[in-house]
Structure formats: structure tokens, C-alpha cells
Write a protein that binds this DNA or RNA. Sequence first.
RNA 1: GGUGAGUUACUCAAGUGGCCAACGAGGGCAGACUGUAAAUCUGCUGGCUUUCGCCUUCGGAAGUUCGAAUCUUCCACUCACCA
Length: 400
Amino acid sequence: MSIDKALNEIKRATAEIIDFEAIEKLVTDYFESGKEYSVKLGLDPTSPDIHLGHTVILQKMATFQKYGANIQLIVGDFTASIGDPTGKSETRKVLSFEEIEKNAATYKEQIFKVLDESKTTVYFNSEWLDKLGSRGMVQLTREYSVARMLERDDFEKRYKSGKSISVSEFLYPLMQGYDSVALKSDIEIGGTDQKFNILMGRHLQRSYGVGKEQAVLLMPIIEGLDGVQKMSKSLNNYIGVTDAPNDMFAKIMSVSDELMWRYYDLLSSKSIEEIERLKAGVEGAEVHPKKVKEDLAYEITARFHSEDDAKAALEAFNKQFKQNQIPDDIPEFDLEEGIWICKALVESGIEPSTSQGRRDIKQGAVRINQEKIGDEQLKLSKGEYILQVGKRKFAKVKVG
RNA sequence: GGUGAGUUACUCAAGUGGCCAACGAGGGCAGACUGUAAAUCUGCUGGCUUUCGCCUUCGGAAGUUCGAAUCUUCCACUCACCA
């Protein structure tokens, strides 16, 4: 493995690198003398499970681990009590300490599906931030001016558009930056939305005389299933790492071809060359794009579940969508005889309300045993039925 | 602390006494077309044991009125300017 190849993989799909020379030197030193270095990642444990967007960064950290990095995983238990203002149009809600602890545990479990645990150290930033005390905190706030703080994009936007900014939110970047001082990190990774916070680390390392300034590697924010907006839980366009294998597989299959390549770059473990080969294959019409997408869905599903799960998901997917068959594992419900169809749809959890059910029947989206129905007054007589709404919502009901 | 403006459904945003379950846009869901694609076109998008009917919604509470998202009062929150 050459240094150049290592550096190329490190550079792959990054949005921005600040002080690449420093990274080059660290990696070169490792190759020449085996000297290791540290890469920092801050985690905001406000949401208990992570989605593929987060794993873009993990993937990059895994690459670093191959080339001599020790990962400093910082659970922002202290900072989470403030709430990261990043990308938020409103002041964030704060979480209780118990919730944060619980979320952090879930986080770690999921993260080690991608990272090598033996080359990772987990820290809680309350460890040093608690010790800082009021005096230390005030000293920290002296290191930055309000005007510069307001330069930050999302602060500026909120300020200009008349949204509220809490003073405590100014502390967030300062404290995240202080983490880099406490741990003397060599490199920090984050999403592009973290640029300000991460650069603060550089600034503070200088002010506090750490003797080095961390290099910064920013990863792009991955687009969600819609291909336009960033992947996020609140937009409901995410693929969670804890999604069931079949869901995960199906979600990846539903992205556009264009987005698929983006996902390849950001998420796949395939090398740059392999991906280029696939691209050329599709362009030359030698490979069907659906096949390429299946491979990606398979790879990701296998990563977070298992090979067997991925195989099963692939089969189930083709069965359900390609051959229009009913999936194997659909929920079952016992219902009373003579139940109104709309009510049955609600009871079996595939419609949120009878009104919605009625609308969908009118549009011909509802099927019983694969037969489209048009009568919204229908009552179900004794027997077993497969109810279906659209292409992906199913339920088996036993009536009577 | 003072003055002024504002708070409408998932989001943005119209509506300033009855024609309002509330214009429009985005999003979402569904239908057609497909590779479960994407793009495009079309419909729907508060709830209700049953829909040319009924019920609950427009920051919260109370009131005026035959009738309130719209008027009044108080409260909460947000913003701007002044201190």
C-alpha cells in the first residue's frame, strides 16, 4: 500500500480539507516510522440512533484507522445539555442527563459496526468541561468576539430572519473547540455544517498554546432519499442503521440513479477504481443500473446486519416489487365479522384514519387479495384476506 | 424597562365578522408510465360506522355577537427600534 494511494482514499469524496499538508505529514510519518496520530470526532448524543448520513464520516474514520489513526470519539454529554445550534432554525430542546447516557450507549453500539474498536477511545466531554468551572468558562468566552460568532452562517441567517438565538448557543462552538484543546487532536472530522465549530478547535488550540493546530477534514452532507434535501430524521428521508434489513434494502433501491453514485462515493467500501469501472459499465450499457444499485443495497445491508440478512432482503425485494408478490412476513390481525373496510385498514395499521382509507379507495390504491376495490362501503365477511394499500403497505387479516 | 410588529394545518404563506376545514407553494400519499427507479402527467392531503351529513381546528384563556381565524381583554412566546 503506497502513501499516495492512502492519501487518495483519504481525499475521496471530501468536501473540504484544511491544512492537507499536515495530514500528508502524519500519514507519511506513519508509513515511515509507525508513529500514530489522533483523529477526533464529536458526537451529539441527542438522537438515539444514527442514519447513513452519520456513517459517511464513520466510513472516513475507518479509512484513517487503516493508515495509523487512533480515533478520539467524543460523546458531547456536556455540550448536549446546551444543544448544537447547527442547522437549526430554532433553539434546540435540551435533553435530560439520563436520556443522553442512554443515547450514548446506543450510539457506540452502532458505531462499532463500522469502526475498529481497538483503535478507538471514547471520551465524555463533561470530563474536562465540568472541571472548567465558571472562571474557566468566562476565560473561554474571551477567546472569541460576538461579531465573529455572528459570522457563522446559521447564526447570521437566524439573526437576519428574526429568529431567536440563545446566548448559551454561543458557548457550543467554544466548548466543542475546547475538546480539541483537552485532547490535543491532530485531525478533526465532521460534516460541512460543522466547519465553524471545528475551525474553532484550531483557533483555540492556538490560543491555549497546545503546540499544534488540528487539520480539518469536512465530509459533504449526504442527500436523503429525495435526493435534494440533506438526510435527516426530521425530514423523514433517512436510512437508519437500525432499519430492518428489508426496509434498508428497499430504501436504497428507491433512490435515483444519480443519487446512487453519490451514495457509492460516500458509503461504499469499494475502491475508487472499482466504482469508476461500474460507472463506465453503466454508461456503455454493459451493466444494468438496477444491478449496480442492488449491489450497493446489498453491501450496505450486509454491513449493518449480515450477509444472510442481505441475501434474504434481496430476494424479498424482488419478490415484492419485481414479481408483484406479497411479502412473506406481514403483520396479522384478528377482526370482527362485518367490519367496515376503512375501519379494517385502520385497525391493521396500514391507514392512519378511515378518512384517509376512504380517499385511497376512491383512488384505487386499496386491494384485497390483490384485487383492486372501488366500494368504500364494503364490509368484510368471514374469512382471511390480504389487505394492501399502494405498493408497500400490507396486512393479513382474519375476520370472524 | 419603553414603543411598535407578529404567532394560521408537516413547512412557508393567504385570509381582517357569515361564501372557511380555511387560497397558493413546497413536502407527503396514491394512480398512470417504469427498473419499487428518477423525470413527467393526474388526483388527494383535519377527523368521524358510513361523507351533498356531523364534529374539532387558525399561540393560550375569557368575552362581544344570531354568527369569530377575523372584534375586545388578559396571558405566553418571537422580532425590530430605543434604553
